[in-house]
Simulated scan of single mutants.
Amino acid sequence: MSAATTTAPTAAGTLALPSLLSLSVARTRLELTTFFRERDAVVFIFAYPVIMLAIFATVFGQDGATVGPEPGIPFGQYFLPGMVATGVMLSSFQNLAISIAVERDEGGLKRLRATPMPASAYFLGKIGSVLVTSLVQMALLLAVAGLMFDIDLPTTVDRWLTFAWVFALGTATGAVCGVGFSSVPRSGRSASAVVTPIVLVLQFVSGVFFVFNDLPRWMQQVAEVFPLKWMAQGMRSVFLPDQAEAFEVSGSWQHPTIALVLAAWLVVGLVLGIRTFRWRRRDDG
């Protein structure tokens, strides 16, 4: 908090706040420190995608089982993109939707709003911390995938560029939607009960735990409304071989559509967040 309220003398002898950039960086450091102190949340967010990948790679990949027509794609290889997309959603949407609701319930947001720090620095600090934690999470997941399960990682620049823009846009979208959704739980105690089931349902219908093309059509149509399906599809275009494109429902990776849907949710989350975000509890006026 002290970094957010420190003032510096100006040439005219008055006091002025630090720049928005320096406030945002300071806030990002504070958010990261707070996040890593919550060890249970850190373990869940970082370990969950790794554990799920290990389950799919070892249980479903026994005896060289594969996905799709011969020669097929190893199960671990096919489900890695879904675990990457899930990791992004956990670090951004779920993390912020729950943590902000708890901060509001405990009165932290009310106290923070009374300081001279601009509201934008608070939100930029949240997004900055999400980007850092997501990068650490992805590095851990990909390292485990490559070193422990012999999953092939991309070797071309264009695939890593695709990974970069899907990851960045997906993380930003998840963070903004998480901020907006944080006003839905009635209290900090109910936040996990409200947010976690939504995340789990989206994982099941978005092709994270199953081959998306094998899901019922109505389930595919539901998933197409939400960003997780498109993040998973974008990541499949990064980590799966070219022939896997034919496995998609549309027969293509649909990169323009992926970018459009994620950008649309980014705008929707931003608008809803601006209109509905609350600094106080519901019973606090």
Rank of each mutant, 00 (worst) to 15 (best):
T5M: 07
A8N: 09
S19F: 12
S19H: 12
L20I: 15
L20D: 12
S22F: 14
S24M: 13
V25W: 14
T33L: 15
R39F: 09
D40R: 15
V43M: 08
F44S: 04
I45E: 09
A47P: 04
P49R: 02
M52Q: 06
I55P: 03
T58C: 04
Q62F: 08
T66W: 00
V67R: 01
E70D: 10
P71M: 04
P74L: 06
Q77I: 01
Q77K: 02
F79P: 02
L80G: 01
P81V: 00
V84A: 03
M89Y: 08
S92F: 01
Q94H: 05
Q94R: 04
N95P: 02
L96E: 07
E103F: 05
R104Q: 01
R104Y: 02
L109G: 09
K110G: 13
R111E: 03
T115D: 03
P116W: 00
Y122T: 08
I127P: 06
V130F: 06
L131P: 06
S134W: 05
L135K: 00
V136K: 00
M138R: 08
M138V: 10
A139S: 09
L140R: 00
L140D: 00
G146T: 09
F149V: 11
I151C: 12
I151D: 12
D152T: 14
F163K: 05
F163I: 10
W165L: 02
L169C: 08
L169Q: 08
G174T: 15
G174M: 13
G174C: 14
A175K: 14
V176I: 15
V179F: 10
F181P: 12
S182F: 06
P185Q: 07
S187Y: 10
A191K: 05
S192E: 14
S192P: 12
L202E: 08
V208Y: 04
F210T: 15
F212V: 07
N213V: 15
V222D: 04
V225F: 11
P227N: 07
L228N: 06
M235K: 11
S237P: 09
S237H: 12
D242H: 11
A246W: 05
F247A: 06
V249D: 01
G251Y: 05
G251F: 09
W253Q: 04
W253T: 04
W253M: 02
A259H: 06
L260P: 08
W265S: 06
W265M: 08
L272Q: 09
F277I: 07
F277G: 03
W279P: 10
R281Y: 01
R282T: 13
D284L: 11
